[in-house]
């Protein structure tokens, strides 16, 4: 299998592969460089592993837990996005048990805030919605929480609707790692955690926001959107991310 040229941010540019690891994913043999993760190898070889917080071009946080896989010899499930390959590794990316856990995690996300797909700007272009369908979800069997979440439309071009936020922190990471502004961060903790701009002020008043819109486009759901879109009209464009990462690395 051909090694990829994509380099994860946060890792040093790779020296010529001194050694190659061979591993099995779902019974098939693959080879990879030692600094590559299970997800890297799976992605290169078109093996689907579900995930929501991960986005190619951003650092990995291992927070959504959808990419957990079974690795022979480990009694714990391991997140594919941050687990490095090793020689002789045997990975199972799907099993009835994993499928059940993944469905439950998606269900929990749906119960956490108010995800009303039918009236969402991202309907039809939403990673959460798509993932739910992909994983065979037809309903949520945990009760919904119905929190009162606000919508901040103070920015002249963008809107944040906390009803749709799944706290993946892609916006936090893209703003910090790519744009370098660190406008976004997470406040509070646990079920009350929330993304905020600056000192939890209205986004439109932010002194640090450059209005670049990267956060909007990496957002997996309709939480961040551009103004002027009706239901189902907000399509995200993410092609800039691998490009910016590549250009940045070539400058170093």
């Amino acid at each position: 299998m051909s090694p990829t040229n994509v380099v994860k941010p946060g890792t040093k540019p790779v020296q010529p592969a001194s050694n190659v690891k061979t591993l099995q994913i779902d019974g098939k043999d693959f080879s990879a460089r030692p600094e590559e993760t299970i997800l890297d190898v799976a992605r290169q070889n078109k093996i689907f592993i579900p995930r929501l917080c991960e986005l190619e071009g951003l650092s990995d946080v291992g927070a959504c837990r959808l990419c957990l896989v079974e690795v022979k010899g480990s009694n714990k499930l391991l997140p594919a996005c941050v687990t490095r390959v090793y020689e002789g590794m045997e990975v199972t990316t799907n099993s009835p048990r994993l499928a059940a856990y993944r469905r439950m995690i998606i269900e929990l996300l749906f119960t956490e805030r108010n995800h009303i797909c039918s009236v969402c700007v991202s309907n039809g272009h939403c990673d959460l919605q798509w993932m739910a369908q992909k994983l065979g979800l037809t309903h949520v069997h945990f009760p919904y929480r119905y929190p009162k979440a606000n919508v901040d439309a103070s920015h002249e071009r963008f809107v944040i609707d906390h009803n749709r936020c799944i706290l993946c922190t892609r916006c936090v990471r893209v703003c910090d790692e790519i744009e370098g502004a660190h406008v976004w961060d997470v406040m509070g903790r646990g079920i009350d955690a929330k993304v905020v701009t600056d000192l939890n002020e209205a986004w439109g008043n932010s002194e640090t926001c450059t209005s670049c819109g990267k956060c909007v486009h990496v957002c997996p759901t309709g939480a961040l959107s551009e103004k002027g879109h009706a239901v189902a009209e907000m399509e995200k464009r993410r092609h800039f991310l691998p490009y910016l990462t590549m250009m940045r690395e070539s400058q170093e």
């Binding site: 946080v61 837990r65 929990l108 996300l109 956490e112 929480r145 903790r189 646990g190 079920i191 009350d192």
Partner: peptide, 16 residues
């Protein structure tokens, strides 16, 4: 109340 809120199972699961 002590869940940091980073991962989904703990953040929403403890609530449920």
């Amino acid at each position: 109340t002590e869940s940091c809120g980073k991962c989904v199972p703990c953040r929403v699961g403890t609530y449920q």
